[in-house]
């Protein structure tokens, strides 16, 4: 179990915390949060520390510190909902809270709940009843949590997503999420109750919609999914599994012994689906209104991926 270096204040205004936290691990997380533990064990979860600040005059403040194995996992938990007011908890975070630059926010506040991605830590600090004093206390706790923590970059796979494609398809960055588990994927974009993409803690995955709005105001949306498997063989197997489950009426038309394939396109109930295998990556575009749009989105993102691979090779 990771050692905590977080130092929370003993008292804040009228609130006081206990001397030691409640410790929750993957073995007892379902006792702590029945029906919710799967979210955290769907990422690389180490342990959780829980403090409850109590006050004689105000409602309690709950502090949950989720220690994850990597910063990517902590990012993933925050990425499930980019809503709320961005807040800067340290001077180094100020550049990432404007909402208009390319960086993802690291702390979001709304109606008493503060959510934080800070290094390998994901934190939830929640005032059971929001008051001006409670909000200030929540933010003070947030600043204590992020003090001396590193601001590590977002997961590499997030950087592959192209923001605008052909001046018409725009990435909904505010709906982009990093994950490893099919349960988490299903809570973002429902695919299947079975794990038809062979997702597990060894993969890195991102999904996000691309949107375009025509002159009459109609909005079209394509859901893009990119998964990086541990090796090309795993990616091929996963794509084969996906094809069998999702497209059973179509022949695969790809060789399972070849790591890189041309894009394959299929007409399905609500438009077009395209997928492509590239080394350890599987890219899929769902719900496309036409073949060309899906092809563009996959092509541009795979091109981006290849450029990143070249940079890594240098």
């Amino acid at each position: 179990m990771k050692t905590s270096s977080i130092r929370l204040p003993k008292t804040i205004g009228s609130w006081t915390r206990p001397d030691s936290p409640q410790i929750v691990t993957s073995t007892n997380i379902f006792d702590y949060m029945d029906g919710a533990g799967e979210l955290y064990t769907g990422y690389r979860f180490d342990h959780l520390e829980v403090y409850e600040y109590t006050s004689d005059t105000q409602d309690d403040i709950l502090v949950e510190l989720y220690f994850m194995e990597t910063s990517d996992d902590a990012f993933g938990l925050l990425s499930l909902d980019w809503g709320g007011e961005p807040v800067a908890l340290s001077p180094s975070q100020e550049n990432s809270t404007t909402g208009s630059n390319d960086q993802f926010n690291r702390a979001l506040y709304g109606q008493g709940l503060l959510r934080i991605w800070s290094d390998e830590l994901y934190a939830r600090v929640m005032a059971y009843r929001e008051t001006p004093e409670a909000k200030e206390a929540v933010l003070t706790i947030g600043r204590a949590i992020t003090a001396d923590q590193k601001n590590l970059p977002e997961p590499e796979i997030m950087e592959i997503l192209t923001a605008v494609i052909d001046s018409e398809w725009t990435l909904r960055k505010d709906r982009s999420s990093f994950f490893r588990s099919y349960l988490v994927l299903n809570s973002i974009y429902y695919l299947s109750p079975q794990n038809i993409l062979d997702l597990d803690l060894s993969v890195e995955a991102v999904t996000a919609p691309y949107e375009k709005t025509n002159e009459s105001g109609d909005r079209k949306r394509i859901q893009f999914l990119l998964v990086k498997y541990i090796d090309p063989e795993s990616a091929q197997q996963a794509l084969s599994h996906f094809h069998d489950a999702f497209l059973p009426e179509y022949k695969k038309g790809f060789r399972v012994d070849s790591a890189t394939q041309e894009t394959r396109v299929f007409e399905v109930e609500n438009g077009w689906l395209e997928y492509r295998l590239h080394n350890s990556h599987v890219a899929i575009a769902f719900d496309s209104p036409d073949q060309e749009s899906a092809r563009k989105i996959i092509h541009k993102n795979i091109l981006n991926l290849k450029e990143k691979e070249k940079i890594h090779e240098r």
């Binding site: 695919l191 079975q194 038809i196 489950a245 059973p248 109930e269």
Partner: peptide, 11 residues
């Protein structure tokens, strides 16, 4: 065994 998918919902 046939796997339930998103397509079943759309259909």
């Amino acid at each position: 065994k046939k796997k339930l998918t998103r397509r079943d919902f759309i259909r």
